[in-house]
Amino acid sequence: MKKFLKRFYVFLIFLFLYAPIFVLIAYSFNSSRSRGAWGGFTLKWYRELFMDREILSALKYTIIIAVLSAVISTILGTAAAIGISQMRKFPRNIVMNISYLPVLNPDIITGVSLMILFIFANIKFGFKTMLIAHITFNTPYVILSVMPKLKQLDTHVYEAALDLGATPWYAFWKVILPQIMPGIVTGCLLAFTLSIDDFVISFFTTGVGVSNLSIAVFSMARRGVNPKINALSTLMFLSVLILLIIVNVRMSRDIKAKKQKEATLV
């Protein structure tokens, strides 16, 4: 009985989490525009979605900005993490505490403060400002993912490489970089997903004609319900689901392979 109650509770919560999403998916195939009635199966909204210039350009900007900001903030952040770890304690603490600001501050304040800066400096709002904003809030996350790996680093290996005649650059490339790679990859992925998902900061830093998917959804939803958004949600839900399943399967396969390897070694 207790077990049944537990299961029932879990079921209810997941129903709460998924019912809205499934309703959206179902109604993305509804040919009637009103949600009260089911007008039969259709792919009309998907066709319209792919012909909607606004959404297509938003999709384009979302991806371009996510890729660019992830790459730039990964390079900037990794270099910064290496540099910061070599600093004396006092300047290091200052830099790290300032880097925490965009992480801890509410998004709306980061967005508003950047907006003031761009107006103050007379920079035209658009692609450039949005990219700068994304790099700004992404880089601290990269630093925070690379930093722990640098702390685990054994400096003797690097020194050994130098003693054996490697140039500092070669030693960095061959010794340090491979060791901190997991942190860099995590940071890069984090930056990419944060950028794709961002609404608030983009909302304050974008200009006419440049918007990402979140902004497009917001301006459509403000005008009321639109079946094209249902179609968009369905596509995004499916891509997230597939992506997570792939990641999960690969991870569990890695763990299994590792276990097998250990077993054969023993």
């Binding site: 809205p20 309703v23 959206l24 998902d197 939803a221 839900f237």
Partner: peptide, 12 residues
């Protein structure tokens, strides 16, 4: 999933 879409779902 994009949190705007999650919020929008409840709107409908």
């Amino acid at each position: 999933m994009n949190f705007l879409l999650r919020t929008y779902a409840w709107l409908t």
